[in-house]
């Protein structure tokens, strides 16, 4: 190692004792005249490469937005900006409103959160507070395995094993709430195949559980031991300690976890495409088929052309903007919490 025998000047005496890390390559020694010291070009080139790699991220993101917008222009100009929010869905008249798909996307994501968040918080508490120390790593490993299973396999499993039994459950639930005012509409008459918004929400809920769990777990783990001990010392039961010490401490972190899970749920594509039933008509009936921005792209893009293709790319753009907004909100919440978690 070393600069290949190139002599260096003695450090100036006033700097002795303090170690300074030079960010730039050392200036050429005044003792050596003539050509630049060896290694200079390599050093520069390496630095430039590193900066370019950083720049590349910016290039990719900007080109995604630009390229998608360019291809979606045909769709946007066909109906004006209103097509972004329009509920019209008349493929025959080339009307492809993004509104109903966007709404159903949000419905699926929200329902998925209703399923995933209590379970994730429960698992996180189980790992940090209840499970024996030795069991923690295996439990985390099992939950991470859930994250490793590909989306398409979740969809396949849901479609082939669970959609039919679920259809029977839906029929029972529908029968039970038929007369009730709001519930009766939300849980309306179910599709015979079991393919529905609810089925999609269940599979998405299972799929976002690992990420929400991972973040909540790390937030809970940052709760100071002294606070928990103080709470127990005051006579609190375990549940009172969790409510009184852990929850207040972790509120913003859990909110951030929920938002990040929401972002994942909005973008989930393949499993949803397999089990949601592909119906573009907006419905308030959670047991009926629907479609989301992502799933309709997966199902229709292959055969689409003309305005429809442009519209599908436009849906991709809407989806992208939606996830970017969600990401920024999550980030600012995390900032406010002023903590750092590894979010994979």
């Amino acid at each position: 190692m070393g600069g290949a025998g190139f002599p260096r000047p003695a450090p100036p005496s006033q700097n002795r004792g303090t170690v300074t890390q030079t960010l730039d390559p050392a200036p050429p020694s005044p003792l050596v005249g003539g050509p630049r010291p060896p290694g200079f070009a390599v050093d520069r080139a390496f630095r430039v490469l590193a900066v370019l790699a950083g720049l590349f991220v910016l290039v990719v993101l900007v080109s995604i937005v630009f390229v998608l917008f360019d291809s979606a222009r045909e769709w946007i100009s066909f109906e004006g900006l209103g097509s972004l929010f329009s509920l019209d869905w008349e493929p025959v008249n080339e009307k492809f409103g993004a509104g109903s798909l966007a709404l159903m996307t949000l419905i699926v994501a929200a329902l998925a959160l209703v399923i995933a968040v209590p379970i994730s918080v429960g698992i996180a508490l189980f790992v940090t507070e209840i499970a024996p120390r030795r069991a923690r790593l295996p439990i985390v490993f099992v939950i991470d395995l859930l994250a490793a299973i590909p989306s398409v396999v979740f969809g396949l499993w849901m479609l082939r094993q669970l959609s039919q039994p679920l259809a029977d459950v839906y029929a029972d639930v529908h029968g039970a709430v038929a007369g009730v005012p709001v519930l009766g509409d939300l849980l309306g008459s179910p599709s015979a195949s079991g393919l529905s918004i609810m089925t999609a929400a269940i599979v998405v809920g299972i799929m976002i559980t690992p990420i929400v769990t991972a973040i909540t777990r790390e937030v809970f783990a940052t709760c100071p031991l002294a606070q928990k001990e103080a709470s127990l010392a005051l006579g609190a039961t375990r549940w009172e300690m969790i409510r009184g010490a852990i929850f207040p401490h972790s509120r913003s972190g859990v909110v951030a976890a929920v938002i990040i899970g929401f972002g994942r749920a909005v973008g989930e594509t393949i499993a949803v495409a397999l089990v949601i039933g592909a119906s573009q008509r907006l419905t308030g009936n959670l047991l009926a088929p629907g479609d989301t921005l992502a799933s309709i792209i997966a199902n229709q893009f292959g055969e689409a052309s003309g305005v429809q293709r442009s519209a599908l790319i436009g849906f991709g753009l809407v989806l992208l903007l939606l996830t970017i907004i969600i990401g920024i909100v999550a980030r600012s919440v995390l900032r406010r919490a002023n903590r750092r978690f590894g979010v994979v």
Binding site: L61, I64, G267, T269, I297, G327
Partner: peptide
Amino acid sequence: ILTGVPSIV
């Protein structure tokens, strides 16, 4: 932000 971009996009 790029981490959050849906894979279909």
